[in-house]
Design a protein around this nucleic acid. Structure first.
Length: 598
RNA sequence: GGGGCUGUAGCUCAGCCGGAUAGAGCGACGGUUUCCUAAACCGUAGGUCGUGGGUUCGAGUCCCGCCAGCCCCGCCA
């Protein structure tokens, strides 16, 4: 429907120019989707703001525009007669045959009418890659609920961008470098030296415990702190023993992370902080050469523009610590520099997206500002922080286990699947159905993981997100099970209707309002995807899929498909096919696979 | 102290470039099954959009003040 909207907008603008030659340019028709179904498909609000400058009543202006519109034969081909409503809105309704033609076109299009950038503006020309930086757990720690949102949201955004045809670099900026390793290695040397030269000498759970101990010592023991800092310097300087220990720890964590990514069907390229180590000094040197670096109290700083502290002094971004070491700001700057730099010395990215919690907003704002002033962000390129809120429990506080620990991601996912299985078994017993264990496991896994992903993606990411197994696994409402069930219903029709569902029928013919409602919903897909691509808000896609499921369920409930006579039967089957295609595509972009039965 | 985010129905949340009478879902209440999976559908009730100003033909949306909650603010990420 985007293509039609663009056509209409051009027609409207031309009509306005003809109707109102005395009006100031440029004229904006203010074309928008109709706010209610009874208003048609689109509304143009452009007459309203012209009332005052032109000194005419807005309805009169609208009338003049409508006269010109109706004189345009290409408009008349597209729409029924426009209707002026309210204070001066122009309501537009597409001709049914145009809607049918759109449906027919999509039935034969594997992309369902969503264009790919590869075929859009510059055919043949390679578009610059988009970097999506997400997940980013820390080595020697387990993935916990804090990584959930970044991982799920980042994967979804990457999928949408990939589907739109962008080359996407899914980068896992793991915490595999820096002070924490100094602490951990120093501590292990004293309490479990075998962990530093033997693979898997201690398991990850122990490593996590050691990490906690190391952190505690670091915070209160000055001598330990000093040794740890020396250890970091040795590591960053390439000391073989330190490097070996570091490699073992990383490998062990990596395998642990991978089981979670496999479970969630998430692809990531690991490129941790350590990758940028060789370029950190150059980053600082470049900043110095650019005249941005100021040594203050022994630390290398870049003072920020527009950010002031208590006493009105500019706040610094510290890029080199007093002891000569580098910190996360240095690494983040090195990453930006590399990602935008031309290949082979960089990624040549045109857009870089950071999916991290909202608490890091000021950090990224500072880093982006410094990178910009250093000239590392090319003209036309964009760097965006995609923030998200905290995961909270039912009590509205940060999600914790009953004993007050952070929730491990694997435990959380397992519990979702277990609850889905228990619910399924209960339902099967109630309905007297019997299914084998393989089916039950398959359904429970799909439903459980889908519920976790969908619950996260379906709320606006900026606000905090209240985690609730009961709500996300509910069979009704805006949940994954509700959407999956719509797909299952269509699969049921396909089973009963044989290969009819797959066949493209002849002329499509529709008459029922439920059919038209479904068609209008189906045709919104391309616009929704375009919106997610620019706004980076997966919940827009979720809302769309939920509304589509609702409209479909109404259709399913009120309009017979298999029992209908031709040509209604074939036309309705075609709608079912397009609906299931749209739902599967949309859910797929959320990282959610579908089922034929549940 | 400075900065950021949030505040919309009992609960969880949408609300796009400022547009028509502010929307869903859950929960509550009432209905629907000879029929493609009722994990569904239909209906009713429920609102001072935190608050006070301002801009505008028009404000949940933009600007300013205030209140509340959360988060960040020199060598952790």
């Amino acid at each position: 429907m985007l293509r039609i909207a663009h056509l209409l907008e051009a027609q409207l603008r031309a009509a306005m120019e003809r109707a109102l030659p005395e009006a100031a340019q440029p004229l904006d028709p203010q074309l928008a989707p109709a706010s209610k179904p009874e208003f048609g498909d689109f509304q143009a609000n452009g007459a309203l703001p012209l009332a005052k400058p032109l000194g005419q009543p807005p309805r009169q202006i609208a009338q003049a525009i409508v006269v010109q519109l109706k004189a345009d034969p290409s408009f008349a081909e597209l729409c029924l007669d426009p209707v002026i409503a309210g204070p001066g809105f122009i309501n537009l309704t597409l001709r049914p045959e145009r809607l049918c033609a759109e449906v027919a076109a999509r039935l034969g299009d594997p992309r369902l009418g969503v264009p790919s950038v590869a075929s859009e503006d510059a055919p043949g020309q390679r578009t610059a890659p988009v970097v999506v930086d997400f997940s980013s757990p820390n080595i020697a720690k387990e993935m916990h609920v804090g990584h959930l949102r970044s991982t799920i949201i980042g994967d979804c955004l990457a999928r949408v961008l990939e589907f739109r045809g962008h080359p996407v670099l899914r980068l896992n900026h793991v915490g595999d470098w820096g002070t924490q390793f100094g602490m951990l290695i120093t501590h292990l040397k004293q309490v479990a030296p075998e962990a530093l030269d033997t693979a898997d000498a201690v398991d990850l759970g122990d490593l996590v415990a050691f990490y906690r101990q190391a952190k505690a010592r670091f915070d209160e023991d000055d001598a330990f702190q000093a040794t740890s800092r020396e250890e970091v310097v040795k590591l960053q300087g390439g000391d073989p023993l330190s490097l070996k220990a570091w490699g073992l720890l990383c490998e062990q964590s990596r395998r642990e992370f991978q089981t979670i990514y496999d479970q969630l069907d998430i692809t990531l390229s690991e490129r941790g902080e350590s990758f940028y180590n060789p370029t950190l000094q150059a980053v600082v040197d470049d900043l110095r050469a650019a005249g941005l670096l100021v040594v203050d109290d022994g630390a290398g700083c870049v003072f920020l523009e527009g950010v002031r502290g208590k006493d009105g002094q500019p706040l610094p971004l510290i890029v080199q610590k007093r002891d000569g070491g580098f910190n996360y700001a240095t690494t983040d700057l090195a990453a930006i520099r590399y990602r935008f730099a031309a290949p082979p010395a960089g990624d040549g990215a045109g857009r870089v997206i950071y999916v991290t919690d909202a608490g890091q907003a000021s950090h990224f704002a500072a880093v982006f500002q410094v990178a910009r002033r250093a000239g590392w962000i090319p003209d036309g390129a964009s760097v965006e922080h995609v923030p998200f809120g905290l995961v909270q429990g039912d009590d509205g506080k940060k999600l914790k286990t009953r004993s007050g620990d952070t929730v491990r991601l694997r435990d959380l996912l397992d519990e979702a699947v277990q609850r889905a299985e228990a619910d399924l078994r209960r339902r099967l017993a109630e309905e007297g159905r019997s299914e084998d264990d393989a089916f039950i496991e398959q359904v429970a896994t799909t439903v459980g993981l889908a519920a976790v992903k969908y619950a996260d993606l379906s709320t606006n990411r900026i606000t905090n997100y209240q985690f609730s197994f009961d709500r996300m696994l509910a069979l009704t409402g805006n949940t994954a099970p509700y959407l999956l069930y719509a797909v299952v219903r269509i699969a049921g029709i396909a089973r009963k209707g044989g290969d009819q569902v797959g066949a493209t029928s002849g002329a499509l013919q529709f008459g029922e309002p439920q059919e038209w409602a479904l068609i209008r919903e189906l045709l919104k897909l391309d616009g929704v995807i375009a919106e997610v691509e620019t706004e980076l808000l997966p919940n827009r896609l979720c809302s769309y899929l939920f509304e589509l499921s609702q409209v479909f369920n109404r259709f399913y409930d009120q309009v017979p498909v298999l029992k209908a006579d031709e040509p209604a039967r074939s036309s309705r089957l075609a709608l079912c096919r397009l609906t299931t295609g749209t739902l599967k595509l949309g859910l797929g972009l959320l990282g959610i696979p579908t089922l034929d039965r549940m």
